[in-house]
């Protein structure tokens, strides 16, 4: 499953990036470069060879773990990915975790109090989350909490001054975890303060979708025969809602949550740009602006791997939740 997907993605991406009517050589050479300089850069980068040969070389290198050198950062792409991905992973996972913890109970609550004040409030809240553009919300939060009240940093992942005084020992690449394990409290505090705003922005957006999803699938389940049957058996409402119904309602919710998670792990571009969060999205946008082919290809391949993996995990979760699904 993974192999054909990756092969397909690599072919499509490779050709799309290479048919763009602009050359990285021109960008590297600058506006005053002569034709000769440009041709020289092109031959250095191998851009003068036929496209299918270029692709062949690329794939051979990728298979041996070499994604090439980033034109923009001059680092091996694989190193760049290793540096930038943990930031995205940290932000996305934290946001997703919080969303699940709040969103599912909120959806259930909304469904079991259908058409009452609490339900209307929840729906209004989640509707606003869908309707409000991410960048707008991000800017508002920055303006309010960073500029006016000076409570939180405007952007970035950690205060560079703090890391200078209290260097972080890199283990997982996740600042929250690394600083927590090593007991580096000043750095931990700084990391927490920095992650609050981007997480809040993401959570607000994610909550909207997830709450609506779990509310509607819960409503659907509450109409089922076995719920009425459980009521006729005199089971307490709490058991019926949170055990009998939720387990069934989680199945579609898990799908949405999983797909969104996979999507965001590929870089929550808007949020990362607004908060200058040095994640995959931030890196990808930078690479695209400078036509950094190897970097763009590297990001795309990584995103494809993540997406397929998350999908696999969702499929496995299905079987755990629903005994009717069995994989042979």
């Amino acid at each position: 499953m993974l192999v054909p997907v990756l092969l397909g993605v690599s072919v499509v991406m490779f050709f799309i990036t290479h048919v763009v009517p602009s050359s990285p050589a021109r960008l590297i050479g600058g506006p005053h470069a002569t034709e000769e300089t440009i041709r020289q850069i092109e031959s250095e980068l191998g851009l003068d060879r036929p496209l299918h040969l270029q692709y062949g070389i690329y794939i051979r290198k990728v298979l041996s773990g070499d994604f090439g050198i980033s034109i923009h950062s001059r680092n091996p792409v694989i190193e760049d990915l290793k540096n930038y991905f943990p930031a995205t992973f940290e932000l996305t996972s934290l946001a997703m975790l919080i969303t699940l913890i709040i969103g599912i109970p909120l959806g259930v609550f909304s469904a079991t109090h259908k058409d009452r004040a609490a339900d209307h409030a929840t729906r209004l809240f989640s509707l606003s989350g869908v309707a409000m553009p991410l960048f707008w919300l991000g800017l508002l939060l920055q303006l309010l909490l960073s500029s006016y009240f000076k409570l939180l940093p405007v952007g970035g992942r950690i205060d560079p001054l703090v890391t200078l005084l209290h260097p972080i020992r890199h283990m997982s690449g996740l600042y929250l975890i690394d600083t927590l394990i090593t007991g580096n409290w000043p750095a931990f505090k700084s990391a927490v303060l920095h992650i609050i705003l981007p997480t809040t922005t993401l959570v607000y957006f994610l909550l909207a979708t997830l709450t609506r999803m779990s509310r509607s699938s819960m409503l659907e389940i509450l109409r089922q025969d076995y719920i009425r049957n459980a009521m006729a058996d005199g089971l307490p409402e709490k058991t019926i809602f949170y055990r009998y119904a939720l387990r069934n309602a989680l199945i579609p919710t898990v799908t949405i949550a999983g797909l969104t998670y996979g999507l965001l792990l590929g870089g929550d571009f808007l949020v990362e740009i607004i908060y200058s969060w040095p994640g995959l999205g931030f890196y990808a946008v930078g690479s695209m602006a400078s036509l950094d082919f190897p970097a763009i290809m590297g990001v795309t391949m990584l995103v494809a791997v993540i997406f397929v993996t998350v999908n696999l995990i969702v499929d496995i979760l299905y079987a755990v939740l629903d005994p009717r699904i069995r994989y042979g």
Binding site: Q224, D225, R228, N229, A232, Y244, N248, P323, R324
Partner: peptide
């Protein structure tokens, strides 16, 4: 109370 469709009246999970 016993319902008509035993298959749907029992919780599938």
């Amino acid at each position: 109370m016993i319902f008509q469709e035993p298959a749907t009246a029992l919780n599938p999970v």
